[in-house]
Amino acid sequence: MTSLRTPRLTLRRWREDDLEPMAAINADPEVMRCVVDGSVRDREQTAEVIARWEREWDERGVGLFAVEVRETGRLAGFTGLTVPDYLPEILPAVEIDWRLGRPFWGRGIATEAARAVLHFALRDRGLARVVGVHQVGNDASEAVMRKLGMRRERETVAPASGAPVRVHVLEA
Rank of each mutant, 00 (worst) to 15 (best):
V136M: 06
S141R: 09
M145H: 13
R107C: 06
A143Y: 12
E112K: 03
A114V: 02
R123H: 14
E112H: 07
N138T: 10
A121W: 00
L127H: 15
D124P: 08
G108I: 04
M145W: 04
F104T: 11
A116G: 09
L118G: 07
V144G: 07
A113N: 09
L122V: 13
A143P: 08
A114F: 00
M145D: 06
F104H: 10
L118K: 10
G132C: 11
V117C: 11
A114R: 00
R129G: 04
W105Q: 10
A140M: 11
W105P: 09
S141D: 10
G101L: 02
I109V: 15
E142C: 14
V136A: 10
R107F: 10
Q135Y: 01
P103W: 09
A114Q: 01
L122G: 05
R129E: 13
G132H: 01
N138V: 03
Q135T: 15
V133R: 00
G126Y: 07
V130W: 00
R125V: 07
A128L: 12
H134M: 12
V136G: 09
N138I: 02
E112Q: 10
I109H: 04
L118D: 07
V144S: 11
R123N: 06
R102P: 05
L118M: 13
I109M: 06
M145S: 14
V117G: 02
H134C: 15
N138C: 07
T111L: 03
R107I: 05
D139Y: 08
F120G: 04
G137Q: 12
R115N: 08
G137V: 11
G132P: 01
F120A: 11
I109R: 00
E112C: 07
V133A: 04
S141T: 12
V136H: 10
W105E: 04
A121M: 07
E112M: 05
R123Q: 14
A113S: 12
F120N: 01
W105M: 04
H119L: 06
V131H: 02
L127I: 10
A140D: 15
G126V: 09
A140C: 14
N138M: 06
R115A: 13
A114I: 03
L118S: 08
L118W: 02
E142P: 03
R123W: 10
A140G: 15
Q135S: 15
L122A: 10
L118T: 05
N138P: 13
A140I: 08
L127T: 14
G108F: 11
V133E: 00
V144Y: 05
H134W: 11
E112L: 05
H134S: 14
V130L: 12
H119Y: 04
V136R: 15
A116K: 01
E142V: 08
A121H: 02
G106A: 09
L122T: 14
G106R: 11
L127E: 12
A121L: 04
A113M: 05
S141E: 11
I109P: 01
V117A: 14
N138R: 12
D139L: 14
R102Y: 06
A121C: 14
N138A: 13
W105I: 02
I109T: 08
F120W: 15
G101P: 05
V131S: 08
P103G: 09
M145R: 13
A116C: 03
A143H: 14
T111A: 15
A110I: 09
E112Y: 03
V117W: 00
G106W: 07
H134E: 14
